[in-house]
């Protein structure tokens, strides 16, 4: 690589980068990119990966209590997908020079965040449905535009993830639908879950646009394609008729159709709660991180054993 052409001046490389972005082409791992672009992507992809693996916990909480074998299989497969999606995303971050070990270290020491939605508890079986319908629904609304993100490996991981997640939201909706048509107790369970998960789901789109300083740069770089508020509105518009079809109500008195805007108006999100949960004061912040750290620490001897075995048997085919 030490040929004369690699002495191409920085400015020309920057122009090349801008041209690639402007032409809606993808940036690939070994391309030159501005440090801030790289840092923004690493932060965002890592946060996304962390959210996938921490997000396994609230749902895994119900695997051993799933009330039918069909539901149990679905839930195991879904939680498994989340581990898989974490792996795809750590892989994408790795192409930017951030190793998984380093990113996990930052998660475990609290220097990296994950989506604060997972700091809410899953108290009943209906929560599994509400997570699928609302939390995965919000995630998909966020993620579909990321399939066109300017960074190639991230966009490709998101294509795969979106394809696999299509069943996640549907199974949640189906689960709630079964409860809503079930006994009085099941129906009450479903409504209670929707009441608790609705507002945190709206928070998943992030702070309002006027309080989201990074949005403009991310949109210029085509990492992000829509603002937080646009996506939040899109999500509300999608959910209202779906809630009606379930026969469940969304816990917002201000929800009404706005003929002029062609959108549903909705009430104010409690951003104080959002900031508090993000700052670590949510009901499950400690618990989630503890479990994650414990799994990692208790797994150390296993990872070390496999590495030691590989060193002893370099051919990798001892059998």
């Amino acid at each position: 690589m030490g040929t004369a052409v690699s002495a191409e001046p920085e400015r020309a490389r920057a122009e090349d980068f801008e041209r690639t972005i402007a032409a809606d082409e993808r940036i690939e791992p070994r391309d030159w990119m501005p440090d801030a672009y790289r840092a923004t992507l690493i932060r965002q992809i890592a946060q996304h990966a962390h959210s996938e693996i921490i997000g396994m916990q609230p749902e895994a909480n119900w695997i051993t209590r799933a009330p039918s074998l069909r539901r149990k299989a679905i839930l195991i497969a879904k939680v498994q997908d989340e581990a898989g999606h974490g792996l795809y995303l750590y892989g994408a971050a790795e192409t930017l020079g951030a190793s998984r070990a380093e990113l996990l270290g930052k998660l475990h020491t609290g220097r990296h965040k994950y989506s604060s939605i997972f700091n809410y508890p899953t108290l009943t079986w209906a929560d599994v449905g509400a997570i699928g319908w609302l939390v995965d629904g919000a995630a998909i609304t966020n993620q579909v535009p990321l399939c066109r993100c300017s960074y190639g490996p991230y966009a490709r991981a998101m294509v795969r993830i979106c394809k696999e997640e299509s069943f996640h939201q549907r199974q949640g909706y189906e689960l709630l639908h079964a409860l809503a048509r079930g006994t009085g107790a099941q129906r009450a369970m479903a409504q209670d879950a929707v009441d608790r998960w609705w507002w945190p789901s709206l928070m998943m789109f992030g702070p309002p646009d006027d309080a989201s300083p990074r949005t403009a740069q991310s949109m210029a770089w085509k990492i992000k394609r829509h603002t937080n508020d646009e996506l939040r509105q899109r999500f509300v518009d999608i959910c209202v008729p779906q809630a009606e079809a379930l026969g469940l109500t969304l816990p917002d008195r201000d929800l009404r159709w706005n003929e002029e805007r062609g959108h549903w108006d909705f009430g104010a999100v409690d951003w104080d709660e959002f900031r508090a949960v993000l700052a670590g004061e949510g009901p499950c912040n400690e618990q989630r991180l503890d479990q994650r750290r414990r799994a990692h620490e208790e797994g150390a001897w296993v990872r070390e054993a496999a590495a030691a075995y590989a060193a002893k048997h370099p051919a990798g085919a001892a059998r």
Binding site: I76, V79, Q80, A83, Y90, A295, E298, G299
Partner: peptide, 15 residues
Amino acid sequence: LAEWAGHAPVLEEEV
């Protein structure tokens, strides 16, 4: 085996 979900020694082993 499903009790391992979220507790496996390495992410690949979760899957």
